[in-house]
Amino acid sequence: MNAMTIAAPVHVGLRGVTRVFETNARTKVEALGPVDLDLRKGEFFAVVGPSGCGKSTLFDIVAGLSPATKGQAIFEGSRLDGRAVPEGVGVVFQEDASFAWLNVADNVAFGIRRAGLGEAEIKRRVDDTLTLMGLRDFAAAYPAQLSGGMRQRVCIARTLVQRPRLILLDEPFGALDQQTRLIMGEELLKLWRETGATVLLITHALDEAAMLADRVGVMSARPGRIIDVVETPWGRDRDSRVVSDPRFGEITARLWMRLRGESMAALSHKAG
């Protein structure tokens, strides 16, 4: 871990955050926490955990899409109340959320156009973002003409064009094949470096977390808590070639040893 991120101030802080779903008056499901977690400004943080552990619930709270039941979630000094996604937060989902009726350029421009930016500024930002995401040649194409990886790129571009300071990704490559995932991972690293944003990546893939993140948070079975935070030794300029580093194996092994018991617990949870 490099010294820069250690010294960096806290960007997102979670204190004793829990989430309880009331399915009806009698049944309550504890979905999350309590979670204590600090995301440092500019770091790349990944969260791994067994299925159903509350990763997506955590994601929704940090995004401001749903409220914490107890505890506090703070982004840049103000409270995330779950009513609105704050300015400065960009969100990318697992599902294809590209707009079928708009071409790539209009998809990317969608958010900033509604936000009332000037036409010249919109055009400049969209051009920059299309170039950054390698979508320049597809500006006039429609989502139906693109592969799944390209469509997810469009969604990432639509988020980036808003210049978020915190980028949240919920299993963004979950529907893609392994090679596409590795390449998309490299691109994610590149845009993380170029934008200087803080990134929170939710994933179920241990190797993806080990390759991309500065720190990986390991979650327990439901209700999910952060039971370990594993730091990776890669520098800022890392790419997918870190998979050949012997320490890569050690890190994924450590993640799995922490997760193994939790995953088994999660599976027996489901069976029972």
Binding site: L65, A84, F93, G111, R114, A115
Partner: peptide
């Protein structure tokens, strides 16, 4: 789509 609409404010 609904979530995206909220994410785009």
């Amino acid at each position: 789509l609904g979530r995206t609409s909220r994410a785009l404010r």
